[in-house]
């Protein structure tokens, strides 16, 4: 039986050493919903942006991949109601 699990966010590190190094600075375990390998974690998508920001602040350069670049749903329209 094959199952497709849609809309998931994967955090990947190039090496276990890097994963360990980052985990020491900003713990990954609490964010990980499932760990397949020390380098591969499924995380809650709500944490993706803040994690990327935290990593940038720590001097790393994470890459974010998604279906459409920065295609977030507008939460508020600034357009005045006429």
């Amino acid at each position: 039986m094959i199952r497709f699990h849609w809309n998931l966010t994967l955090l990947q590190f190039a090496s276990p050493k890097l994963a360990e190094e980052i985990d020491a600075q900003c713990p990954i375990v609490p964010l990980s919903q499932r760990t397949f390998h020390p380098t591969s974690h499924l995380i809650d998508d709500q944490h993706a942006e803040s994690l990327a920001q935290t990593l940038v602040e720590r001097g790393y350069s994470p890459r974010v991949e998604s279906a459409s670049p920065s295609a977030s749903t507008p939460r508020t329209s600034l357009k005045p109601q006429t």
Binding site: F4, F13, D45, L55, S61, P62, R63, A67
Partner: peptide, 9 residues
């Protein structure tokens, strides 16, 4: 080195 891949399967 670090990739956050969103909306995947």
């Amino acid at each position: 080195q670090i990739v956050i891949s969103r909306q995947g399967v």
